[in-house]
Nucleic acid binder design. Sequence first.
DNA 1: CGCGCGTCTTGACCTGAGTCAACTCGCGCA
DNA 2: TGCGCGAGTTGACTCAGGTCAAGACGCGCG
Lengths: 247, 247
Amino acid sequence: MNPSTPEQEAQPPSIETSCSNCNLRELCLPVGLSDEEMRSVDQLINVRRRIRRGSYLYRTGARFESIYAIRSGFFKTDIILEDGRDQVTGFQMPGELLGLDGIGSDHHSCNAIALLDSEVCYIPFRSMDQLSREIHPLRHHLHKIMSREIVRDHGVMLLLGTMRAEERLATFLLNLSQRFTARGFSPAEFNLCMTRHEIGTYLGLKMETVSRLFSRFQEEKLIAIHKKYIHILDIHGLKRLLNHRNA
Amino acid sequence: MNPSTPEQEAQPPSIETSCSNCNLRELCLPVGLSDEEMRSVDQLINVRRRIRRGSYLYRTGARFESIYAIRSGFFKTDIILEDGRDQVTGFQMPGELLGLDGIGSDHHSCNAIALLDSEVCYIPFRSMDQLSREIHPLRHHLHKIMSREIVRDHGVMLLLGTMRAEERLATFLLNLSQRFTARGFSPAEFNLCMTRHEIGTYLGLKMETVSRLFSRFQEEKLIAIHKKYIHILDIHGLKRLLNHRNA
DNA sequence: CGCGCGTCTTGACCTGAGTCAACTCGCGCA
DNA sequence: TGCGCGAGTTGACTCAGGTCAAGACGCGCG
């Protein structure tokens, strides 16, 4: 998990790719494309790489050239201040895109780090932009994805700005559950592939607080947790922790 | 400032518009367009409206049709939870765009409220999307604006997730100062057109904390503040409040 | 000209989450 | 087989910022 030495950066084995028969195509970039359009996109995306757990997909300051579609695995993005404080800005799952932060300044503004051994498809942004002139659904979908990222970020601001610790953690678990469900996994049982520290850094809490809350949720029979494996026992109980506070 | 009755919604007087001779053209959407391209954009944007202080430009849930360029005035965007808690997600100045949050779901996901009497240019999104097929710089600029919004939001997450109250407020003042400067106003003296409560709701602090901090900054000769009028006396002092904590 | 209301300020007190520290657990490695 | 180390847990204590309350200030209105 320790973010590896620079040499370990995203490298070699480029794997054959094809959106057409990728089982994530309904979640990922090519949503809503015709077969023909899909084939054009296939041609665009000709690099897929493995990223080893703990290594960087890109770093703050790196030149922006591609966006990346996660094919398998799990990532986090973070920003780090000179004085060492850092903020995890998101956790990303298969079918989600990484790298949109780079468009604005031609350089990436955060780090993207694999939390598991992962595979990503490289989508060269210039080519994709060109192609999106022709293919309206592609262009539109890109806009949607960026807009949703903005909306998601606003949700995180709400979380960080107004919620108590237990609400933050409950929100986090419910969000993961919902995203796993969308990918055909169990809504109730999954592996947290991030550390307590990383969860805390995302939620604006310290690791100790996250740990205490997991223990408390467990006592209250809301969850069962063993190391990184979590079982949500009472999803409604978790939801009840949200709105009902603070009224 | 009390967000007005619904009837007061954005309405009537549509004013003649033209990007070509708008003094914000270097900040706003048409950055980097040729004269001819600018003329095409002019045709696109044929509605400009006054929005009275306290009234809504759009509300959460409203159908998304346009994005909006602020011609004059000042706005805030916020999200409100059922239980009444709210988070201000941003303050927007002339030359900035509003409404990008609506693209993802075809409905707006936040409220946009004028903090001063304002004027906004309506940019119908469909037409703009069409036009952006032809005009590469326009398309590219839209992407940049959305990407920068994402990066900005990450910055706010960092603020909310890791900074102490005094750092948050200092960051906020420095950010305003920098944006006023970019618009040709004084970097050191300006009017805060939002209430202490709104500042707090943006920074994840209570009004009382904001008020106390203003008083303290004043005692420490970092700023002079009278009601909403603020004079930054020691910009380096404010900057020193940032990195140097927490090391 | 004075009333009322919303915004702001300030003080006293409280508390949720942070800090610090000790300890456990489990994994990788020699 | 046992050592070392990072991740996680838990307890005792602290404190930044929230809460509550009183009062000041200033503006619009009758």
